[in-house]
Amino acid sequence: MKIVAVTACPTGIAHTYMAAEQLAKTGAALGHEVKVETQGAMGIENELTAEDIRNADYVIFAADIEVEERQRFDGLPTIEVPAQLAIKDPAAIFAKLNQ
């Protein structure tokens, strides 16, 4: 499956990027095509393009704070989890996709 994801934590210097890495790594291991945008203290990085989002089957928000420019993802099936879950148990998030 093609999956886009956004990660964001309150301080935006550590957990945001750890969550992004875990999602990308785990998603790839499960055979998904995953692209992750980080919304940390530096603002939006690795920004998802309109094409990424159009082609995606799912969007995962692994965020403790409000996701910026959320309206970009309107209409896409969404999974929302705390950023912490993406770090501790990313596989559980991808398992939700199959439910």
Binding site: A8, P10, T11, G12, A41, D64, E66
Partner: peptide
């Protein structure tokens, strides 16, 4: 509610 508060705090930290 927690998410709202954390959003405010995250912008305030710098």
């Amino acid at each position: 509610l927690r998410q709202y508060l954390l959003t405010g705090v995250s912008y305030a930290i710098p």
